[in-house]
Design a protein around this nucleic acid. Sequence first.
DNA 1: CACCATACGGAGGCCCCCTCCGCTTTGCAA
DNA 2: TTGCAAAGCGGAGGGGGCCTCCGTATGGTG
Lengths: 199, 199
Amino acid sequence: MAPTPLPTTRPTRADAARNYDLLVTAARQTFAEHGTDTSLEEIARRAGVGIGTLYRRFPNRTALLEAVYVDEIQSVCDRAYDFDRELPPFEALAAWLRSFVGYGLSKKTLAVELMEALGKDSAFFKTCKANVVEAGQLLLDKAKATGEVRAELKLEDVMRLVGGINMARDTEPEQAMRLLDIVLCGLRPAASGPRPATD
Amino acid sequence: MAPTPLPTTRPTRADAARNYDLLVTAARQTFAEHGTDTSLEEIARRAGVGIGTLYRRFPNRTALLEAVYVDEIQSVCDRAYDFDRELPPFEALAAWLRSFVGYGLSKKTLAVELMEALGKDSAFFKTCKANVVEAGQLLLDKAKATGEVRAELKLEDVMRLVGGINMARDTEPEQAMRLLDIVLCGLRPAASGPRPATD
DNA sequence: CACCATACGGAGGCCCCCTCCGCTTTGCAA
DNA sequence: TTGCAAAGCGGAGGGGGCCTCCGTATGGTG
């Protein structure tokens, strides 16, 4: 259902594969606990692996983040299709964006990095972005079709706005949802024709 | 016009005062050119001052940022009162937020740090926040009074949303303004009564 | 002018990033 | 089973940033 499978480069040799898993697991835990600027040496230590091994497999911090993100991004995409199946158009979009923000709240720094990453141009992040965009576009278009979202809005704008909600360091969950509600209001067409002149 | 003057701790002794200025100037330049994660040693070097001097005056990176931000924040506040004087309520609010975003576009990393900083709890940032909030609240309340902004909205939410627009690394100016327009639409009351039920 | 509170500056300890290379392991083929 | 090359391992070490500490210098006051 999700379009392109995300590229992973898990090695084939037994020891290498084992270490790969150890590293990704350790990285996921450590990033979640201490943010994405944890020392890579710390991660190697946690994984019980030499620092050289880490750097051979993941030439830089970003490469490691990529491996950690694969699953998260996949699940973001999957949820879009779930909501599309189960809810009427606008609610599906709203629910997806809400789950997006909720995810961000629980994984703070991961989500921040993710939002920044979606603007980057590595092959990996291109694919990620394509997948997310494909899922989001589906929901947005359906919501537009029922007239509940203004036709001229772009998915990219919506995503950025919602992403921005996640960026601030210490947003409370209730606040984040309020912010999202403001954005959702902004997506709707002015219910009674054009908005009042503002000039 | 701006409420509390922002606290600066420029030293009194002649040599110390001179070095203080050299450091702040160098920091402002360097942060603008290379982002706020430039090495502090580099800044000391540019200022022609020992690293020890920098650290004595500014015990950490944040302290240095504070000194650099003072002027910027002051001008953000000042503009609010200008717009309040010159424009009708909603337009004043819109113009202020627009200038806020515009400022962010030109100073990227500075603005990002600033938005994060406004959530922090140092005495300095508390004062900054108070000033910005006082200015923004004025504009928001006036816009509410004319019914052009929904009464239940909080300034903090608006600021966060607008701040979020600045957070993404590589937003185009036109896009940023589009995003802001979406937010502005979200601030307005649904023109024809309550928004459609969304379950 | 003399004195001392205040300020200067850079060496050094610590940690992190990343590279390089000699040793070890794996898995295939005979 | 055994031998062996390719693949993988890991940590020492160079480079650099953060921050502290302390011996030296200096402004400004009596």
